[in-house]
Design a protein around this nucleic acid. Structure first.
Lengths: 148, 148
DNA sequence: TAAGATTGAGTCCTCAATCTTC
DNA sequence: GAAGATTGAGGACTCAATCTTA
């Protein structure tokens, strides 16, 4: 029970982090009518390029059904367009429209501004270390999911 | 756009962290019939002692309506008991039962074991630094919420 | 009037079932 | 049969409305 001292704080802070993050960033749809999940999916498509839905689901680490509904919403809003893959008629390839790219860039600025405010008194080394440890944690969880 | 290099990875890793964490730990109810949220609320009551619902909601950083439903579920399962506050007839005070304490201790062991596996190749210094930075991030988000 | 608590409506996610195409 | 994708059911959370008591 000795290393409870080591893992206890991690468990507690992570739990709080999840709930606080969702409360801070997961605000209801803005005037544009789109929410956090739509923004994040649009970001994936904008930065990493077009992809089919199953690929997006894997990259975003969510269920395919979620991506299916999100893409339908983004498509209805005119932010992405869907093109049928001529080589595989089961699949669709999703691409951002110009409107979608503009929308994402505006949203990203608001997001980054909030992040800069929150981490204003951190040193660059701390910010880099936070991203690095977070990345290692993600890698460990991914490996655990594979190995299961 | 220069510090996109600094905040971009943070945004990306945190987004992935949230989704992966939920997939890894937010499994559907086990044989006991209770899920992650019930476990976390029970942990709060077990470790920090009895409290009324509004206090629990504040500590857990979720809406009061969520805690209200969670407490009702835990009470139905016999893991917590509710006592009316004699000094304030609006409020109830929630306490864990012996059954609830046992349940939480068993669950915590499973949780800690998974955490130990995931972070097995981290140094103690890295684990401590991760918890510390996470705590600072939480503090920054809490301050931002207050100041709004 | 404000605080403690409950309930109903709407949204996002997971899981399971289904359909189409490889 | 397996992979890409869609749809329906159920759970958890947010928000708003409501009720009771301080």
């Amino acid at each position: 029970v000795e290393d409870d001292d080591e893992y206890g704080p991690i468990a507690r802070e992570v739990g709080l982090f999840l709930r606080r993050w969702l409360r801070t960033f997961d605000k209801r749809a803005d005037s544009s009518g789109l929410d956090r999940t739509a923004y994040m999916l649009l970001g994936r498509i904008s930065t990493d390029g077009p992809a089919r839905l199953s690929r997006l689901a894997g990259d975003m680490c969510v269920d395919l059904s979620v991506v299916s509904r999100q893409v339908a919403a983004l498509e209805a809003a005119g932010l992405v367009k869907r093109e049928h893959d001529p080589a595989d008629r089961r699949a669709s390839v999703i691409t951002t429209t110009d409107l979608g790219a503009d929308y994402f860039n505006r949203k990203r600025e608001h997001f980054r501004a909030l992040l800069r405010t929150l981490l204003a008194d951190w040193t660059p080394a701390e910010r880099a270390e936070f991203a690095r440890l977070m990345g290692r944690f993600n890698g460990a969880m991914a490996a655990h999911e594979e190995g299961k």
